[in-house]
Amino acid sequence: MKINNETVAYLEKLARIELTDEERVECCSDLQDIVSHMDILSELDTQDAEPLSQSFSAKNVMREDEVKPSLDRDTALKNAPRVKDGFFSVPKTVE
């Protein structure tokens, strides 16, 4: 797979970040290296291999439906850049 400027622009959009032109060039070559490495893997025949979604053999890890105390609100809001009336406050998402 070939990484080009369009791929980087698309990823910027999805990640909601804006790169400088310099960073774009750097990002393009970094990503190309990563993807090329993956291309080596895809040379393997995985026809009969089950896709792996977990690296542990654990299964059925569940908890009982019992309420435990939540955080107190001041603690919950502590990392928020902006707070108003007990709410997290973020840039407006609709016009």
Partner: peptide, 14 residues
Amino acid sequence: LIHDADEINTLVDY
């Protein structure tokens, strides 16, 4: 998300 309680920001209750 509450959009109309504040003029500039959206308020969030999780």
